[in-house]
Design a protein around this nucleic acid. Structure first.
Length: 395
DNA sequence: TCTGGGGTCCTAGGACCC
DNA sequence: TCTGGGGTCCTAGGACCC
């Protein structure tokens, strides 16, 4: 008997703030705001539901959060600790499904198809899952259940926090109606504005449009996405087809700067972080990209593809410097600098060159240092493993 | 409001080739 | 001379998400 598809989407509520409240019981029931320190540049990474009552939300500038909630408990991000708790949660999820796809540090998509013989109906199984995570990992979560990953994701959001919601077969369109057009995952401000400008501002109006009309109005990908999303159909979310990906690091300066010393040192530091990430995942790449942001927040990027693999952090750095120097207007101070690899493929870099270049040799030294640090258990880039998300495959 | 950091995917145009 | 159609790769920028 082939069973109908069932997916769970698990979303940890206000995750960073919840971990802080678990570790410091005195913070329970209070407005906890995790992110940049007030008075510095930065934003809210996560905040407790108590803080949300003051109008604070994630991605809000920390200065604004402080204006709205001066009595809040402001804490720095402890990524290593969150990764630990996340690992415990993911382990528990693995007891419920053989196909757990971590989407981020606080989300996962589970294929639960055919598990009812083992666990019983989905709703009860989700209850058990929630109880297990709460008691063993200590953090609250919301679960969505549906016939595809896209609907399950939105269902997990529907009754947050501590939510549980199942979209029953046949109830897809009614569920989308209940969610409402502006809250459909993948529809952002710009697309909503475009739709509104052509008077396609309700689900009813949109559903009268044929797929081809939507495509010609909004472009192939967006048209196709819209046509399926408003009907609650799968949009190919979180597909597991392994493609090339990117690795990057960036930093915002405490103050805007034109000082080449500061800029180049940052770039060198970031290059080493990026290269270590590449080592850690045994990847290779020929494409170097940089990103820079001026004091007026205008942001640019450029990239170049070499005819050989990048062998070392030195080479990455020097390629980045060339890119930046060719474009940057030093009259205007920089706010941010970033560097990374694009089109990263699995496989060793150029390690066994017959005639190693200076970069190859430097790369070997860097890799040796990296391996030693790995053995000593230090400098493990915590985020590296966590950021290897499944491909997002939105459209 | 004075706006982090790390990603994915899409689009459009240009280069180049057959 | 004034002109096709398809394919691939590359790049910059934009939209969106956590």
């Amino acid at each position: 008997m082939s069973s109908a598809p069932v997916f769970f989407h698990v979303d940890l509520d206000a995750f960073f703030a919840s971990v802080e409240q678990m570790d410091n019981p005195g913070y329970k029931g209070k407005p906890v705001i995790v992110g940049a320190a007030p008075g510095h540049r930065g934003v809210v990474s996560a905040c407790s539901y108590e803080a949300r009552k003051f109008g604070v939300h994630s991605a809000m500038p920390i200065s604004e959060a402080f204006r709205r909630c001066p009595q809040g408990i402001y804490l720095p991000v402890r990524m290593k600790r969150y990764a630990e708790v996340s690992g415990v949660v993911m382990g528990i999820l693995g007891e419920f499904s053989p196909d757990v796809r971590p989407i981020s540090i606080d989300e996962a998509s589970l294929d639960m198809t055919g598990t009812s013989l083992l666990f019983g109906p989905p709703l009860g199984t989700a209850e058990k899952l929630k109880t297990q995570v709460r008691s063993r990992a200590g953090v609250p979560l919301s679960v969505g259940i549906a016939q595809n990953r896209f609907l399950a994701k939105m269902a997990s959001d529907f009754k947050k926090p501590d939510g549980l919601y199942e979209v029953r077969p046949g109830g897809e369109e009614a569920f989308i109606d209940a969610v409402g057009l502006p809250k459909i995952w993948g529809l952002g401000k710009k697309t909503l504005e475009r739709l509104s400008a052509i008077h396609l501002d309700t689900l009813a109006k949109l559903r009268q449009m044929g797929e081809d009309s939507l495509k010609s109005l909004m472009g192939q990908a967006t048209g196709n996405f819209l046509y399926n999303a408003i009907r609650g159909r799968d949009i190919g979310m979180y597909s597991d087809t392994a493609k090339s990906h990117s690795i990057s690091h960036e930093t915002t300066f405490p103050e805007d700067t034109s000082d080449w010393e500061i800029i180049s040192l940052s770039l060198l530091d970031l290059s080493h972080q990026v290269m270590y990430r590449l080592f850690a995942e045994n990847g290779k790449s020929r494409t170097v990209s940089i990103k820079y942001r001026y004091s007026d927040f205008s942001t640019f990027s450029c990239q170049t593809t070499l005819n050989h693999l990048v062998a070392s952090a030195e080479e990455l750095y020097e390629t980045g410097v060339k890119l930046l120097k060719a474009k940057w207007n030093p009259q205007v101070p920089l706010r941010l600098i970033g560097i990374g690899f694009d089109k990263v493929q699995p496989g060793e870099g150029s390690q066994q060159e017959l005639f190693p270049t200076a970069y190859d040799r430097k790369g070997m030294v860097e890799k040796a240092v990296f391996n030693m640090q790995q053995k000593a258990g230090e400098a493990t880039p915590v985020k590296a493993s966590l950021l290897q998300r499944p491909r997002r495959g939105r459209r």
